[in-house]
């Protein structure tokens, strides 16, 4: 599903080049649940951003479903965002001015889904995550864990093939974290959704079936912790 070869990302500053990612080669198959680990500044988030088309590498090639990403136009990228990729963020990134219902509904609006269908899809999602009672609340009326549940629901409503999660449990306490991870595991196993998450925690990484360790922008085999 994902094939990276020789991906590098660096910042040029006068006479010095600082590498964030150093010639990454990586392949991820459909149906995997991958955890990217590593210390602060290792380049985890940058790698995830590149995987999600939010950032562009300076060097190297990236194939998504055998499609060369470096050749995609801005418009094609947003097409993929609509149909193939769902994002979950550490800071949830719900839109404060919209209710739970409206937040979950938003991806469907950009996909121009008809009103009736939209209603039933959102209702399904609310039901699935047990947040029907909260549908008219605004994000600031919810706890962190609840917000992240909404964030996951929003990421899933577009029925994506891939979920990219940047420290999804970073702001949550352990009980909430476990709930979210159980959710991910269930999605991965029952619905075959590919999941790539960035995490600091071994416990969270343990939910997945593969760990990629990053250090100073390069993949290392040993757990650097």
């Amino acid at each position: 599903m994902i094939k990276l070869s020789g991906i590098s990302k660096y910042l040029d500053k006068k006479f010095q080049r600082t590498f964030i990612l150093r010639s990454i080669d990586l392949e991820i198959e459909q149906g995997e649940f991958v955890s990217i680990m590593g210390p602060s500044g290792a380049g985890k988030s940058t790698l995830l951003n590149i995987l999600g088309f939010l950032d562009e590498p300076n060097d190297g090639e990236y194939y998504f479903l055998d499609e060369p990403v470096h050749n995609l136009s801005e418009r094609q990228k947003s097409e993929y965002h609509k149909s193939h990729i769902g994002f979950v963020f550490q800071a949830y990134h719900l839109i404060d001015e919209l209710t739970v219902y409206e937040n979950i509904e938003m991806p469907l609006l950009y996909r121009k889904v008809k009103g009736k269908e939209r209603k039933s899809l959102v209702a399904d999602m609310l039901d699935k995550f047990n947040i029907v009672a909260k549908k008219d609340l605004f994000p600031n009326q919810l706890s962190g864990g609840q917000q992240q549940v909404v964030g996951v629901a929003r990421a899933l409503i577009g029925n994506p093939k891939l979920i990219l999660a940047d420290e999804p449990t970073g702001n949550l306490h352990s009980e909430q974290s476990e709930y979210i991870m159980q959710l991910f595991k269930q999605l991965n196993q029952e619905e075959g959704v590919t999941i790539i998450q960035v995490t600091h925690s071994d416990a969270m990484a343990a939910y997945g079936n593969r760990v990629i360790n990053l250090q100073d922008g390069a993949i290392v085999t040993k757990n650097p912790y």
Partner: peptide, 16 residues
């Protein structure tokens, strides 16, 4: 800015 980011991630293009 954050709203713009989220919308983009959810598939909004610049014109929208």
């Amino acid at each position: 800015g954050r709203e713009v980011g989220v919308r983009k991630v959810l598939g909004a293009n610049k014109r929208q």
